[in-house]
Amino acid sequence: MNDTVKLLSTEQTQAFDTEYVDDEMFELVAKQLQHYHITQQDFQLMDVGGGNGKYVDRILSRFPQASVTLVEPEPSLVAKNTPNTRKHIIPSTFQNLDLPSQLQVVQFNWVLHHFVTDGYANTCQLQQKAIEEAYQILAPGGVILIYENFYEGAWLKSLPSWMIYQLTASQRFAPFAERLGANTAGVGVCFHSASYWQTLLQRAGFLTIQETHCYDFGTLSPLKKLGLMLKKQSVGLLIAQKPHC
């Protein structure tokens, strides 16, 4: 992959120096890995945008048969990783990676909405290509795991996605976006509805796709939600399996 992805500054990235996968959500991942028979053998997992590495440390602790590759472009987060002989850290964007092959798991924890470039349509294509690349590097029967914030439009499902991208990607509107609480102001962020992500997975070739609702969230006032044509915000897990043949 060689697409240009816009990166947050170090100061902006620090806001994400936390672990969003709580105990219940981790157990959900573990259950799904067992359901798809991933944990019945040695397996390789790639965590894209793995940050400080606390999530993959839990994977390594829980599954002694696992080895992980953590991909993270922000040096300050890479430096916070605890060394482990089964953890390979690559300080790079996913787009500039010399991709491996025959992995059993590729995971994106709240990362795909940060895959942004110039223009909304180009950004959507960048996200689509990332999912297609994940499909290619998975072994037959491998799975992709995606934790995401889903934004559902009140009338048109994709309208909040387009509006939030325009507000956050524009340098002109950056001060306004910051006042709204967007620390991605000036760079951009591109959320989608759950059904949109499922469409991208289907286009990439995944056939078995499951969605698990985790919780609803949202601190926007009714007026701001109305302005964004936003119906609902939720967090969920998408898991899709590559066909065995």
Rank of each mutant, 00 (worst) to 15 (best):
F94G: 02
T219W: 08
G153W: 02
D118R: 14
L145W: 06
T168G: 10
L237W: 05
P222C: 04
D23T: 13
L138M: 13
Q166R: 15
E133L: 11
P100D: 05
Q241I: 06
H37D: 15
V71D: 00
Q95W: 01
D22H: 13
A139M: 08
V189P: 00
V5G: 04
E11N: 07
I146M: 03
H88V: 08
Q12T: 03
L237S: 10
A154H: 12
G181V: 04
L145C: 10
L112Q: 01
S92K: 08
C190F: 06
V106I: 14
F108C: 01
Q32Y: 14
L201Y: 09
T82C: 08
M163A: 12
L99Y: 14
T123P: 08
F63V: 11
M229D: 05
G218Q: 11
V235A: 06
G186L: 06
S76R: 13
Y196V: 02
S92T: 10
D118M: 08
E152H: 07
S9H: 10
D22M: 09
L167N: 05
G53F: 06
I239S: 04
D57Y: 06
S101H: 12
E74L: 03
T123G: 14
I59S: 04
T10L: 08
Q14V: 03
V143A: 10
Y165Q: 07
K157S: 13
Q102P: 01
F173T: 09
Y120G: 02
S67G: 05
S101V: 02
G205D: 06
A182N: 13
Q65S: 15
G218D: 11
A169K: 08
G186P: 10
A174N: 11
P175F: 10
H88I: 07
C214P: 01
G51A: 08
V29L: 15
D98Y: 05
F217C: 09
C124R: 10
G186I: 05
T117P: 09
K54N: 12
G188V: 07
L103M: 10
Q40L: 08
A174V: 10
K242M: 03
L201H: 01
K232S: 10
Q41F: 06
N84A: 09
K242R: 13
I90F: 04
Q171W: 13
T85P: 01
E132F: 00
K80C: 02
E152R: 12
H113P: 02
V116Q: 01
V21H: 07
F63W: 13
L230V: 00
L207C: 13
K6E: 04
Y147A: 05
V48S: 04
M46Q: 06
E133N: 15
T13A: 14
A66N: 05
R62W: 13
G49H: 04
C245K: 14
P83D: 04
V116C: 01
I239D: 02
D57T: 14
H113M: 00
H88Y: 13
L145D: 02
N96H: 14
T39S: 15
N109T: 11
